[in-house]
Write a protein that binds this DNA or RNA. Sequence first.
DNA 1: GCATACAGACCTGTATACAGCCCTGCGCAC
DNA 2: GTGCGCAGGGCTGTATACAGGTCTGTATGC
Lengths: 232, 232
Amino acid sequence: MSEGRVEFLYQTLKARAVGFEFRPGERINEGMVAKELNASRTPLREAMNRLVAEQLVEFRSGQGFFCRALDPTSIFELYEMRMIIETAAARRACQRATTSDIAALRDQLEADGLTTAGLTIREVVTRDEAFHLGIARLVGNSEVVRHLDRINERIRFIRWVDMGRRVRTTKGEHLKIMEALEARDSERAAAVLKTHVMRRMDEIVAAVREGYSNIFMADPEELFDRLVPDGD
Amino acid sequence: MSEGRVEFLYQTLKARAVGFEFRPGERINEGMVAKELNASRTPLREAMNRLVAEQLVEFRSGQGFFCRALDPTSIFELYEMRMIIETAAARRACQRATTSDIAALRDQLEADGLTTAGLTIREVVTRDEAFHLGIARLVGNSEVVRHLDRINERIRFIRWVDMGRRVRTTKGEHLKIMEALEARDSERAAAVLKTHVMRRMDEIVAAVREGYSNIFMADPEELFDRLVPDGD
DNA sequence: GCATACAGACCTGTATACAGCCCTGCGCAC
DNA sequence: GTGCGCAGGGCTGTATACAGGTCTGTATGC
């Protein structure tokens, strides 16, 4: 808060938008939200406009701000975009990352533990994103990291759902990716990443469907604070 | 204007930011700009916040809005990001674009004429971007188009400089790319695109240097309204 | 029962006011 | 001549007020 009220509102509203605490298509009442966050509408609208530029919120002239839609096509496109950036990043990381930076990524991966047991869905996704951003950082191109981060925000909600849906083999696949990076095997790294990241349209449709049901439940936020399903 | 004052301000300010009509690092005086555009500071700041989210303008709490920096490293990173997206787009276009959509892109390319003679630098870059966005559109993924567009805005100024610097073989390379797309030869399309798009760091440093000298000249805008150098 | 028109409340869009901070420029001391 | 401190102006940050438009809900007619 000391570093700017708009910044605080931006972060708070972003978190809400990312997690679909505003329901898809819902009109966002500036007055109510402003009062709730102890601010006036002026800085709130400034923060909202940033979210509009990030596609986390929609704006219709004369009507105000609305929560973005949640539809399978958009999510699918975002997954593909994510795959494009990540595979390109992995290829470049294999070619130009320093051995010590790669080693640091492995350390980070191992520091997260060998299993996802005992973690909440949210925590697992956070760690997953951190690993993938770590790969992007190996490229040494801040734009790659930034774009990936922006995309992650927009699919994070569905990733929570997805992570809860099935026992993901996240950890094992991360290790495989890590090995490919250490071997500096671009093609293998890209190939493993591709299958690790990408989802089929029918999987996405199912996740979106479940996402909707979560959104309209009583306390949807708690859902993702439960522990991940046991890995076998 | 009818479709929202903020939208109008956003478009106007974006054009200025893209073309470095604000000088790099310059503080943007809200009061002056607002008066100039016949608006109050409230909608102006809303528009500015969108530009902040798009990295076209910087914001420092307590100090206001500043024009973004113009430095070779950022430009280089953006070029690489552009290359990542474009090569991935071309590969996918080869695989999944319909033959008629590809034919439509060729029509667009030929409608632009067989040479860049008689066009201003601005016009050539506009057409160049349109062709590349056309490839991105072949993928059928709106995110790919959007991200490419965002990146293009941030390097457009340097592309103007670059297009004026040397007789670019733009048109010929576009034809080669087009042929690769028609042959659905992913690898060739990606390879040609890569050399067509990418710039070496020393080229970028030179362009940025020239960019600065243009920015601090009397009437920098006219510079890019001159005709492109004769192609031999 | 259903569609339509109207009225009222509500909400958005923008201007403006004002408090507080930042920066500049001047003066003073060294 | 140079560095530091202080005061003033100017700019930013936010709240608030108000005008205009949008939506809702009701009442009326078919």
